[in-house]
Amino acid sequence: MNTKTALVTGASSGIGEATALKLAELGYTVYGAARRTDRLQDLADRGVRPLAMDVTDDASLQAGVKPLVEETGRIDVLVNNAGYGSYGAIEDVPEEEARRQFDVNVFGAMRLAQLALPHMRSQRSGTIVNITSMGGKIHTPLGGWYHGTKFALEALSDCLRLEVRPFGIDVVVIEPGGIKTEWGAIAAGRLRQTSGTGPYAAQAAAVADSLSSEANARRNSPPSIIADAIAKAVTARKPKTRYATGFGAKPLIAVRKILTDRAFDALIKRATGIHN
């Protein structure tokens, strides 16, 4: 019962998978959550406990947290990693898809925090790790709904940090840059489907090519670099409030602070291949 317990969402691949394995290596009892438990078999073979969870379904969230606490008696780390990038012109993205983007990336994470907090407060300790993105500090064309979720999660994390600190609970934001995962290809596919024709087609083609380009893929960092940052945060006596890491994260966030809006707009347009 003295072993610390961690819950990692979106654990079936990429950052979530790497994080679950890293925390297990550190001695945590780790529950790896995903909608499809068949994709968690490799984690299960390596000591991570698979957990079926749909972050858009409140009953699923409650059904996931309850047995975790019953089995281990505690919850020490919550890593809100589940999320995806829904790219497309703001005008083109259907309302249903825009709402789903917020349901997965924002409301699911905050609902899990609500469910974990009573247990963390009772034990007077805990760490909530919210995976945002450098996209929570910068903007790119045709990513409005996605960036909106990440900006929102940044703000919610700041407020939550203030609220729960008196109970010995830390809230940490991880801001990944370019990471070698399925994210870019999925976002590019959604973008082409949503805005590949019509008035935004030229922009969509340029941005989709940028998201899925082999050159970017080669420069991107491995998911393990994010898992290492999370491990550093949850084991620190006094963790930093933010960890920006992965390809491009620190320089782009720094440049955004320096440049004017229009200057940054011009930089991002050049970087994504938009010429008008």
Rank of each mutant, 00 (worst) to 15 (best):
E17W: 10
K4C: 05
A116K: 01
A263W: 14
K257I: 00
T3S: 14
S125F: 04
C159H: 08
L112N: 04
D170P: 02
L61I: 15
P166E: 12
T132H: 03
R262F: 15
V164N: 01
A244R: 03
G16H: 07
R262M: 14
P67T: 07
Y146C: 04
S125Q: 07
T56F: 12
F264E: 05
L267R: 02
V207Y: 11
A6C: 08
A215N: 03
A33D: 14
A229W: 09
P94R: 00
H275Q: 10
L43D: 05
V171Q: 02
T245P: 00
N105C: 08
V173F: 06
F247L: 04
S12I: 04
P223W: 11
K238P: 00
D76T: 07
S213G: 09
G143E: 06
A6Q: 03
T197A: 09
T19S: 05
A89H: 07
V173A: 10
Q41A: 15
Q203S: 13
N130C: 09
I169E: 06
D76W: 12
L43I: 06
G273P: 01
A44V: 02
R219N: 08
D76F: 13
D158S: 09
A24E: 06
T140C: 13
G143R: 00
R242M: 12
V172F: 11
T245I: 15
R35D: 14
T241V: 12
A205P: 02
G27Y: 01
A201L: 02
E91H: 06
V173E: 13
A271C: 06
V171W: 05
R121D: 12
A185V: 11
R161I: 06
H139E: 09
V65M: 15
G14A: 12
I230H: 01
R36C: 10
D42W: 06
L156E: 07
A113W: 02
L142M: 08
R39F: 14
V207D: 09
Y84C: 02
S12M: 02
R192I: 14
H147W: 11
M120T: 05
K137G: 06
P118H: 04
G196E: 05
G126D: 08
V55W: 07
A201Q: 03
T5I: 08
G10W: 10
G135E: 08
K250T: 15
A59T: 10
Q62E: 15
A187H: 01
N2C: 01
E182V: 09
V129F: 08
L115V: 12
A215Q: 12
S86C: 06
K66D: 15
A205E: 15
V79R: 00
M134K: 02
P118D: 10
A244P: 08
R256L: 04
E91W: 07
R256F: 10
Y31E: 03
T140F: 15
R256C: 04
N105P: 04
G196D: 03
T235L: 08
N105D: 13
L115F: 12
A233H: 02
D103W: 05
T56C: 14
D228S: 10
F151R: 00
L115Y: 08
P223M: 07
A205C: 06
W145F: 15
G148I: 06
I268S: 14
R111Y: 13
Q62F: 13
T29N: 12
Q193E: 15
F151N: 00
D103H: 04
E214D: 15
P50R: 00
V8F: 08
A201G: 03
